[in-house]
Design a protein around this nucleic acid. Sequence first.
DNA 1: CGGGGAAATGTTTACGTCAACATCTCGCGT
DNA 2: ACGCGAGATGTTGACGTAAACATTTCCCCG
Lengths: 345, 345
Amino acid sequence: MTTTTGQVPATARRRAPSMADVAREANVSGQTVSRVSNGRDNVDAATRDRVLAAMAKLGYRPNSAARALRTGRFRSIGVIMFTLSSFGNMRTLDAITTAATDAGYSLTLIPVPHPTKGELSVAFDRLADAAVDGVILIIEAHLLDESDVELPGGLPVVIVDSSGDERFPAIDTDQAHGARLAVQHLLDLGHETVWHIAGPGRSYSATRRREAWAATLAEHGAEAPPALEGDWSTESGYELGLELAANPAVTAVFAANDQMALGVLRAMHESGRAVPGDVSVVGFDDMSESSSFWPPLTTVHQFFGEVGRRSVEALLHEVEVGERRDDSLVDVELVVRQSTAPPRA
Amino acid sequence: MTTTTGQVPATARRRAPSMADVAREANVSGQTVSRVSNGRDNVDAATRDRVLAAMAKLGYRPNSAARALRTGRFRSIGVIMFTLSSFGNMRTLDAITTAATDAGYSLTLIPVPHPTKGELSVAFDRLADAAVDGVILIIEAHLLDESDVELPGGLPVVIVDSSGDERFPAIDTDQAHGARLAVQHLLDLGHETVWHIAGPGRSYSATRRREAWAATLAEHGAEAPPALEGDWSTESGYELGLELAANPAVTAVFAANDQMALGVLRAMHESGRAVPGDVSVVGFDDMSESSSFWPPLTTVHQFFGEVGRRSVEALLHEVEVGERRDDSLVDVELVVRQSTAPPRA
DNA sequence: CGGGGAAATGTTTACGTCAACATCTCGCGT
DNA sequence: ACGCGAGATGTTGACGTAAACATTTCCCCG
């Protein structure tokens, strides 16, 4: 019936309305629509209203591809991480998402199914044609070091991990301080020494915790038993816990994360060793379930939210200002619950 | 030395190389570069090699904004979800990410900090200028129903939840079957009836589980005690568990998720009620920690991976083929561990 | 009452890619 | 020898936006 716009039944509409459509509807130039769309203030109030009305009427949505092409910015940050299984990574991702959103950036997730160099390369390739202004790496930085993978040139990168790598700023929890707090607590309770279930050796975080554990023992003249090495999983904590339970000399255990600590608790229960009566257990992370473990777990609280926030801050600073931020360490807090007590006399 | 390209020191390079740069370097037309870049087969092998070499030399990366602008496709899907806290959502997100990546799509995360209608609108607005071809909603669909929010027109949507909403296909775990399995198991062990700690009423999943619980009891002529309502958190399970522990008539509890079940376990321990001796407890989810709870938790295993995969499949089918998929229910499995036993005679 | 200038608005163009179409180069059959 | 067609490659233009620059309007001040 009407002639101008080549009307189509609403159900069959093909093309989303563009700036030009809005401009026509509001009887202004495209540029004015652009100005309204971007919230510039040099537009007459009446004009602005007219444009906004036209936008609403047509259901206009700016085409982000065109915008990105024009501006060279995607307003999106990429996060590369291993499968989301780990509790800490989840929380960090959550905080990153929130921080990025608040800053007006969207967030693109780039998974790495297996933590191998090859897979990492694949992820970086994906990254290459992903539409992001910068990248946060939540991976065990170790891999990066070994890796000859070329990170896409010119793309700002922030690493969430303790890294030896100098190429990029690293944001991390103060692993060493946390471990120190945990060991100190156990020693203060009167334990002769503290056994340790470490995380996998390829993880810098695990290494930091383990080193701080050993150092703290040494400072107090306590003899360090051999460290056991788990893989962060509850199961590995359980199996290693069974070993410890069988050794009557063990009175205090520091597990490198809460999940392994949970495994240790189970192992102790099954072996008839009372916690904290016979054996005290400390974890690391303070996952939300830890307060309901049996017994409620004494652990080192990580402020994942803060880590996430700082990562985004550092990355966006580099993206927008072009200035690299320094490394940053987020403090930690010991939460004493009921899995620790003085050794039985 | 060379003349053509207006060389800049590598450190100061401003602009990423474009197709035109590669074309010049390889001495072909831009279109040929495009063809190589998109893996078309109608390019001579020698030419292809030359182009690939030029790409490698210049570090060429296709500009996804330009590509998206030209093709009208972003090759990205959006996921709207509440803060990542919940275990199940995490796992689902993980699977979605993997499935999307395998299909060559990237994934954009759009968080909703608080599950209110207002926040949901904000998320949808964000979505509007996000560069996605379709959306997966991991939210309690309830909100959608109440909400007058207009979803961006023409954007395919899939909901991960049991939804009454007919507007979009829903993919979900078979909540009812899971609850039925749990209650049945307890009844089979000889318990007279089963108490229930439900999830929040606004959640369809919680409602489904609760209804199935009630229905199963009714079918067996068991009297249904009043359902308690938690908020999925360990804490709420603990508090409600304390109530149940104080009631000597309680011998079997079905908690609507593992975290609340963990809270119940703690409450029972603290109240001196043996699990499973005095009280049997069943959860729902089968989180990775559940096998190490004390006692290891009998629970309903959800196949989150399958849910995620099917969601992506359904969404991409609609995006690429334009055909809506039917609702889909993912089956479930009862995992019997050590938190359940016949009632004490 | 005229001129200067700020504010509002319009016009032109380029961002990098890919579809559509145009052209070119061969090999092969008759 | 010639022409035809298939495959390889080149040319042109448009996607929707925003920066840069151009133009218009109108208010204020001397």
